[in-house]
Simulated assay, not measured.
Amino acid sequence: MAHRFTPRRALGGTGFLATALGAGDLADRSVPKERCVETLRRALDAGLNVVDTAPMYEDGYSEEIVGEALRGRRAGVFLVDKIDHLDRPVAPQLTESLRRLGLGSVDLLVLHSCSEPEAWRRAKAPGGAMAELAEEVARGRARFRGISSHHPDVLADALASGQCDVVMFPVGPYCHPRYVDEILPAAKARGVGTICFKTFGAGKLVGDTEGYGRPLAQRPRGKVSSGGDDAPAPTLPRLSVEECLRYTLTLDPDVALLGLSFPNEQDAAFAAAEAFRPMSGGELAATRGRAAEAIRGKGEVWWDPNDGS
Rank of each mutant, 00 (worst) to 15 (best):
R4D: 13
F5L: 11
G15P: 01
A20W: 04
L21K: 02
L21Q: 03
G24F: 10
L26Y: 01
V31M: 01
K33C: 14
E34M: 10
C36H: 11
L40S: 02
A43W: 13
L44C: 07
G47L: 07
G47A: 05
L48C: 08
T53Y: 08
T53R: 06
D59E: 12
D59Y: 12
E63H: 04
E68I: 11
R71Y: 14
G72M: 00
G76D: 00
L79G: 06
H85E: 15
R88S: 14
P92H: 06
E96P: 06
S97F: 04
L98T: 01
R99D: 08
G102K: 01
G104T: 15
G104F: 14
D107R: 09
V110S: 09
E118M: 13
A119P: 11
G127M: 05
L133K: 05
A134E: 00
E136D: 03
R145A: 05
G146M: 02
S148D: 00
S148C: 02
P152F: 04
A156K: 06
Q163T: 09
D165E: 09
V166T: 00
V167E: 07
P173I: 05
Y174T: 08
Y179T: 05
E182F: 11
R190H: 03
G191C: 08
V192E: 13
T194L: 07
T199E: 12
G203V: 05
G207A: 15
A217I: 11
R219L: 01
P220T: 02
K223F: 15
K223D: 14
S225P: 12
S226L: 14
S226Y: 13
G227V: 09
G227P: 06
T235C: 12
L236Q: 13
R238M: 13
V241A: 01
E242Q: 13
C244H: 01
T248N: 00
T250G: 04
L251W: 03
V255F: 01
A269C: 15
A273N: 03
A275W: 09
A285Q: 11
R290A: 06
A291H: 04
A291D: 09
E293L: 15
G297T: 11
W302Y: 14
D304Y: 02
P305V: 03
N306P: 14
